[in-house]
Design a protein around this nucleic acid. Structure first.
Length: 431
RNA sequence: UCCUCGAUAGCUCAGCGGUAGAGCAACCGGCUGUUAACCGGUGGGUCGCAGGUUCGAAUCCUGCUCGGGGAGCCA
């Protein structure tokens, strides 16, 4: 009796007869021999059906299989130098489950609009399969690192009564008799959690109702946000560079095959180790001016600016001490330089730009009250947040890492929309 | 929201004032090592929508709709 096997671990069955269950990815045929390329969710493998070596009705059934038909088959696992994954299946029997009709994504090239309309099917294909497998590894590694380093996962609510940072536009929804908004960050709740548990993180989707239309924006994206009590900005950055290095190392360790499928230059990833270079906002402005950009102190970086800076480094770079005026109300001012705050954005190399934003938070109740007045934040909405500065306030810091941007960088992808199973983009809500 | 490019067969595109084309997919046939397999054949179209110019519009003009790329904002 043939043992049930997974393509991803087919090497464990070398020389043995196995049963595979999956879908037909592609078929090539030459009269007396069919090459069935089978996928089962864990991998892809070529199954060879030779006339005379299987029952005649099985050979005929194999010839009638169409792209994405579902089937089971049995055969002998055989190491073969001609095979892409190193193994092939010499088929003994073929059992079609359903012969698919007119599968839309054919083996030739397609436009992005068509592929996005067929996203529910596109995720079956090799490149998408590799990208989403790497996404899984990024998330798993990030949580592993935090769990191993004393962080507790304490998630933040998705439905919130008010903005966390005030600047970006929020999705509004009904909450019985009042208005609620979809979370754009778990930051403020994280600070409460850090005062309760010390080191915490939250992980979940966040929503920005910005009408952004670029290769690095999603309307709905996933963010991992650690927050640490008794932590200053230097320690905060140390955690960030260790976390990112750990993620990259885990992807290199566990997803070599997927990196090969998408033809990623892994030598660029093998150099990702702490420490990461630090660059002050002041110096970054000088570099941009030197490169001929029309920018002056106090301006935010545009996408071309971030690209220009990150292209100059082979590792992710921290840009530190941004002007107070362009950052969130809760950031701690730099001692002796109130015009800048203790913060850093981490820009991924190769031109990818920002993947992390982090800062030390204001702990002083008087300063926090002043900032909340300046930003017109109401006592009603932010009273609970203010209490964190009254009942045992401590220095604390944290950051948020954008999962899809991180995956885009690690996979060397052009566009962020393929880094999430079902992207929500400007003017695209389906499927 | 702004700038810019585009919409022709199921898909990717060519055709750019004179009767609608190719490759792939589908269907039929051939091929014992293919791997975006290949070779022969068949079917397949309200040229995004609405107006206009013209003897004649897929082709030129205007508006609309939908999409790509870029900007701003951000992770």
């Amino acid at each position: 009796m043939a043992a049930l096997a997974l393509i991803g671990k087919i090497g464990e069955h070398d020389g043995k007869e196995v049963e595979l269950r999956g879908w037909l990815y592609n078929k090539r045929s030459s009269g007396r021999i069919h090459f069935l390329e089978l996928r089962d969710g864990t991998g892809f493998i070529q199954c060879v059906v030779v006339k005379g070596e299987v029952p005649d009705e099985d050979f005929e059934a194999a010839g009638k299989l169409t792209q994405e038909s579902s089937l089971r088959l049995t055969g002998i696992v055989r190491a073969d130098a001609r095979a892409k994954g190193g193994y092939e299946i010499t088929v003994k029997s073929v059992m079609p489950f359903q012969v698919a009709q007119d599968y839309p994504i054919t083996p030739k090239e397609h436009g992005i609009d068509f592929l996005m309309d067929n996203r529910h099917l596109w995720i079956r294909h090799k490149r998408q399969h590799a990208l989403l497998s790497i996404r899984h590894e990024v998330i798993a590694a990030a949580q592993q690192y935090l769990n191993d380093n004393g962080f507790l996962r304490v998630d933040a609510p998705i439905l919130t009564p008010a903005a966390c940072e005030g600047t970006t536009t929020l999705f509004e929804t009904e909450y019985f008799e009042e208005k609620a908004y979809l979370s754009q960050s778990g930051q403020l709740y994280n600070e409460a959690d850090a005062m309760a548990f010390g080191k915490v993180y939250c992980f979940g989707p966040t929503f920005r109702a910005e009408k952004s239309k670029t290769r690095r924006h999603l309307i709905e994206f996933w963010m991992l946000e650690p927050e640490m009590a008794w932590c200053d900005q230097e320690e905060n950055q140390r955690v960030q560079e260790e976390l990112v290095s750990y993620i990259v190392a885990k992807v290199l360790e566990k997803r070599r095959a997927e990196l090969a499928v998408i033809e990623r230059d892994v030598t660029k990833l093998e150099d990702i180790k702490p420490p990461f270079p630090r660059l002050s906002y002041d110096d970054a402005i000088d570099i941009l001016k030197g490169a001929g950009r029309d920018i002056s102190w106090g301006d935010d970086f545009g996408a071309p600016d971030e690209t220009l800076i990150s292209e100059r480094f082979t590792r992710p770079v921290f840009v530190t001490n941004y002007p107070t005026s362009m950052k969130a109300f809760y950031m701690q001012p730099e001692p002796g330089r109130p015009e800048v705050v203790k913060c850093a954005d981490m820009l991924a190399p190769e031109g990818y730009g920002e993947i992390i934003g982090g800062s030390e938070r204001i702990w002083d109740p008087a300063l926090m009250e002043e900032r909340m007045r300046q930003h017109n934040l109401s006592e009603e909405a932010y009273g609970w947040y203010m209490q964190l500065r009254k009942f045992g306030t401590v220095p604390h810091s944290g950051f948020g890492i954008g999962i899809e941007r991180t995956v885009a960088w690690i996979t060397g992808s052009e566009h962020i929309r393929e880094m999430i199973p079902f992207p929500r983009l400007l003017y695209r809500l389906r499927p």
